[in-house]
Simulated scan of single mutants.
Amino acid sequence: MGSRYVSESGFYMTSFAATIFIASLVTIGVLLVTSVVSLAVMLQSCENKSKGVVATIDKANDNHHYCEILALHGELNGLKPDNVPPLCRNLAVQYIETGGYTRDLDFVMRMIENFFDTVSPSKNQTDAVLIDIDNILVSDPSVQRVLESYTKLHSKGWLLILLSRKHENQRHVTIKHLNSIGFDGWSSLIMRSDLEMEMETREYFCRRRTEMTEQGNEIMSVISSQMDALMGLSLGIRLFKLPNPLYYNFENNHESRIHGLVQSEN
């Protein structure tokens, strides 16, 4: 006969049953330990993933702030798009394609419209608004919004003087481009001579503004997306800085359009 075990309560158990009972307890213990270990691993994995997401967000924010600082100093020092790191060029493209540029441009154009709702040109027609047309009139996201404000200024009787960094030999094709996108009624278009092409752009703009004031014009405002047109003497009453995705090379787009216009004339 097999061995029997009896407890104080009178419960009898064979050795075989006792073995199975103990084995079951061991199995349950192993399962509990395994579950605890698995749960700990899962929690650690979730924590690591969370840290990874936070690190990614922090990295993206760092890149954004870095490119913002670079943009500011790039504009102050005339940094060319070719000198900009690829990272910032990519962010600039995203800034345009996701609607950030259009949104910021609209904010500034509203500021311009609100300001000019509070002032009026004099009757002698010498009060001028200077508009830097480079960049803002060659990018599709900006043309229509700028045109809206331009039309309002023109209807109120302001003398609209357009500024460009381009050489005088591009005057005809530039005027054709302006007409094609609806910009008409301006007073004059200022472009650079051979001598002025050798100057720094900020010196060129300053020189031309000084000439305007000496000729009797009163500069009310200068509107530009670039800092070189907003520095120096004879800047008028109010300056407006339009958003400028420094790293997105509108110049290539502009040159291709100019080339297309020239080809169409031949």
Rank of each mutant, 00 (worst) to 15 (best):
G99Y: 09
G100I: 08
Y101T: 06
Y101W: 14
Y101D: 06
R103F: 14
D104K: 15
L105D: 01
D106H: 05
D106P: 11
V108R: 12
V108N: 02
M109F: 02
M109H: 02
M109T: 15
M109I: 14
R110W: 02
I112L: 11
E113D: 09
D117P: 07
T118K: 12
S120V: 14
S120I: 08
P121W: 00
S122L: 06
K123C: 10
N124S: 11
Q125P: 01
D127G: 01
V129F: 11
D132A: 13
I133E: 06
D134R: 06
N135C: 11
N135I: 04
I136E: 04
L137W: 10
L137S: 09
V138H: 01
S139P: 00
S139F: 06
P141V: 03
P141W: 04
V143L: 15
V143G: 10
Q144W: 05
R145H: 12
R145L: 09
L147M: 04
L147R: 12
L147H: 11
L147I: 09
Y150D: 08
T151C: 10
T151Q: 08
T151I: 03
K152F: 07
L153R: 05
H154M: 10
S155G: 03
L159S: 12
L159D: 03
L160I: 09
L160Q: 11
L163Q: 03
S164Q: 08
R165I: 00
R165G: 05
H167G: 12
H167V: 11
E168A: 12
Q170L: 05
V173H: 03
K176W: 00
L178H: 01
N179W: 02
I181K: 11
G182H: 07
F183Y: 15
D184A: 12
D184G: 15
W186H: 13
S188D: 07
L189C: 07
I190F: 08
M191T: 00
R192T: 01
R192K: 14
S193L: 11
E196V: 07
E200R: 13
T201N: 11
R202E: 01
R202I: 04
R202D: 05
Y204D: 04
C206W: 11
R209A: 04
E214T: 13
Q215M: 14
Q215P: 04
G216E: 13
G216I: 05
G216A: 09
N217A: 03
N217Y: 15
N217L: 09
E218Y: 07
S221E: 11
I223P: 02
S224G: 14
S224R: 01
S225E: 09
Q226Y: 00
Q226P: 03
Q226K: 07
M227A: 12
L230G: 03
M231A: 03
S234A: 14
S234H: 15
G236W: 05
G236N: 09
L239Q: 07
L239C: 04
F240W: 14
